[in-house]
């Protein structure tokens, strides 16, 4: 069942894990001088970084640091005032068919008249093509994705009747059904149960091991942070990016949080 999600096609074979954070690596996301401005408010300032394949990358920082904005800007979901984002040496916004994005749960109207099955099938809309119905392959992919997150029994349930954790798992299933190379999740761990958290990290590890890019906005600095291989620490500007242990230095955290209370207690070491 698991292999179903990662068919080895020419351009998605598991690449060797990149140890170096070199700017010349072609099989990764390279962000250069990204800047986002909303009506005279600078949301992101001159952010340059590399997101490597085959690891789980967390985006952390205080409230209003531009964590969600970074993901949205990278995918072209919000207007960018400067900078460029490349994936395999091509602009990422021209390759959105390789991207699966899961928005914050709070951005969705959960009273929308749709069932769990409707939402998971949305992950197949792009692959199915214009004017066509979903193929049997698409249905199988959607069913397998739903099975993977343990939500098969809820197929015909209205999405509004689910708990927060169940809603999040349905969204993860939708992302899996997209057969993407780059997975972006905005606050997937906000307000969910322990069971869902375990399922989610299990899937993240599996995706990373298959050579996918997993990019996760994470507000919480609790023990969940040990699941991330790499971190991007933001506070409008980039404070640090790279391996978790290097980013979570006391100096970096002080610079990012500037005297705000930090729950984090040095478990990085």
């Amino acid at each position: 069942m698991k292999t179903l999600f990662f068919p080895t096609s020419a351009d998605s074979q598991p690449a060797p894990v990149l140890k170096k954070n070199s700017m010349d690596s072609s099989a990764a996301i390279i962000v250069s001088n990204l800047e986002v401005q909303y009506r005279n408010v600078l949301a992101l300032q001159d952010v340059s970084l590399v997101v490597r394949l085959g690891g789980i990358t967390g985006i952390i920082g205080p409230n209003g640091a531009g964590k969600s904005t970074l993901i949205k800007a990278m995918l072209g979901l919000t207007p960018v005032t400067n900078g460029i984002v490349l994936y395999n040496d091509e602009p990422l916004i021209n390759q959105l068919d390789k991207v699966a994005y899961v928005p914050q749960r709070s951005q969705i109207d959960w009273s929308y008249p749709a069932t769990v099955w409707d939402v998971v099938l949305m992950g197949r809309v792009r692959k199915a093509g214009w004017f066509r119905r979903f193929s049997s392959v698409s249905r199988q992919m959607a069913a397998a994705a739903l099975e993977r997150v343990g939500m098969s029994d809820y197929r015909d349930r209205s999405i509004g009747q689910l708990s927060g954790g169940q809603q999040q798992r349905v969204f993860i299933a939708r992302a899996l059904a997209e057969e993407a190379e780059i997975f972006c999740f905005d606050e997937p761990l906000a307000g969910i149960d322990k069971k869902t958290e375990a399922v989610i990290f299990d899937i993240f590890h599996e995706l990373a091991n298959a050579g996918k890019i997993v990019l996760v906005v994470n507000h919480d600095l609790g023990e969940a942070i040990t699941h991330f291989n790499d971190l991007i620490l933001l506070n409008t500007q980039l404070i640090a990016s790279g391996s978790r242990t290097a980013v979570l230095s006391q100096e970096n955290m002080n610079r990012a949080y500037r005297g705000q209370v930090v729950f984090f207690e040095g478990e990085a070491a």
Binding site: K72, L75, G76, L77, L96, D97, V99, A100, Y101, V102, P103, Q107, I108, D109, Y112, A114, D118, V119, L121, M122, G123, V125, R126, A128, W130, R133, F134, R174, E178, C184
Partner: peptide, 16 residues
Amino acid sequence: KELLFYTFDPLGAQAA
């Protein structure tokens, strides 16, 4: 199916 996706989750549809 496109309009369902777009009206339910405009950002997700755009990202796809």
